[in-house]
C-alpha cells in the first residue's frame, strides 16, 4: 500500500471525495444501463444527466462561496440550498 500521508487527508475530505467518486460511478452505470436523450428545460439548451450534475456541482460550489462570503454561520444552510438547487436542476433543467 503506497503512503498517502503527504496528501494530508482528513476524514471529512475523504468522505467528500468518496461521495463524489460514488456519484460519478453511479452516473456512469446509469448512462450504460439507461441511455437517455438530451432534453431542453429552463436553461434553454439541451442537457443530459451529466450536464445537470455538472451544473448542480458548480452551483453548489458557488452557493457555498457566496454563503461564506456573505458571512453566513456554519455550512449546513449552504449545503441545504445546494441540494435544493441540484434537485431543481435535475427536475427542470
Amino acid at each position: 500500500m503506497p503512503d498517502f500521508s503527504w496528501m494530508a487527508w482528513t476524514w471529512q475530505t475523504a468522505a467528500f471525495f468518496a461521495l463524489l467518486a460514488a456519484t460519478l460511478a453511479g452516473m456512469t452505470a446509469l448512462a450504460l444501463l439507461r441511455p437517455e436523450a438530451p432534453r431542453r428545460g429552463i436553461l434553454r439548451f439541451p442537457t443530459t444527466r451529466g450536464d445537470r450534475l455538472f451544473v448542480s456541482l458548480l452551483g453548489a460550489a458557488v452557493i457555498h462561496v457566496l454563503w461564506i462570503g456573505l458571512g453566513g454561520e456554519g455550512v449546513w444552510p449552504a449545503l441545504g440550498a445546494s441540494v435544493l438547487f441540484g434537485a431543481a436542476m435535475f427536475r427542470y433543467a
Binding site: 496528501m7 475530505t13 471525495f17
Partner: peptide, 11 residues
C-alpha cells in the same frame, strides 16, 4: 485533492 485537504487545515 491535496489542495482541497490543505484548504481545510493549518500546518
Amino acid at each position: 485533492m491535496t489542495v482541497v485537504n490543505y484548504s481545510v487545515q493549518d500546518s
